Simulated assay, not measured.
Amino acid sequence: MSNLFTSKNPAGVAVGQTAAIFGVLAAGAVNAHMAGIAAARAARESNNSNVLRHQLHVAIGRAQDLCDVAVAQASEIEQLKAENARLRAASATYLAAARRKAA
């Protein structure tokens, strides 16, 4: 590149040097901007990942709670079925005794 002070066209050299300086500055600014966009995107994806992970843990906890309730209900249903069978047998016995007394 020619020297501003020794050139036959100092204005052209000044324009060229200024353009080169601003070109480098613009490239740096564009790189910084793109890096900022990438960092913001990464932070947003990380945040979304954390939110989804939290929602998954909540859903797993609720599913486990519902499973525990279902198991307890199934156990209670089995107990009620057994008691119902016992009461039917007792009722049949009492009915048979009542019929024998009535006859």
Results as ranks from 00 to 15, higher is better:
A29P: 04
P10S: 08
R41M: 02
A89R: 02
L25I: 09
Q64F: 07
R100D: 13
T18P: 01
P10H: 00
G28V: 02
S46L: 09
V24A: 15
G61S: 14
C67V: 00
L4P: 00
A92I: 05
A26Q: 10
A82T: 07
N3W: 05
T6C: 05
K81C: 08
A35L: 14
G36L: 14
V30T: 05
I37F: 09
A59N: 08
Q55A: 04
A72Q: 12
N48W: 02
E78K: 01
T6F: 12
Q64S: 13
I37P: 10
A70K: 11
Q17V: 03
Q79D: 02
R99W: 05
L56R: 00
P10K: 07
A98S: 01
N50C: 08
A70V: 04
I77P: 00
A39T: 06
R44Y: 01
R100M: 11
L56F: 06
C67A: 05
E78Q: 09
V58L: 11
H54T: 13
N48G: 00
L80V: 13
I21G: 03
A103S: 08
M1H: 02
A38W: 03
N47F: 14
K8S: 14
A89F: 06
A11T: 08
L80H: 14
R86E: 06
Q73A: 10
V15T: 10
T18A: 06
F5G: 10
K8T: 05
R100N: 01
A32K: 15
L87S: 02
A102K: 09
I60R: 04
V69L: 10
A82L: 15
A20V: 03
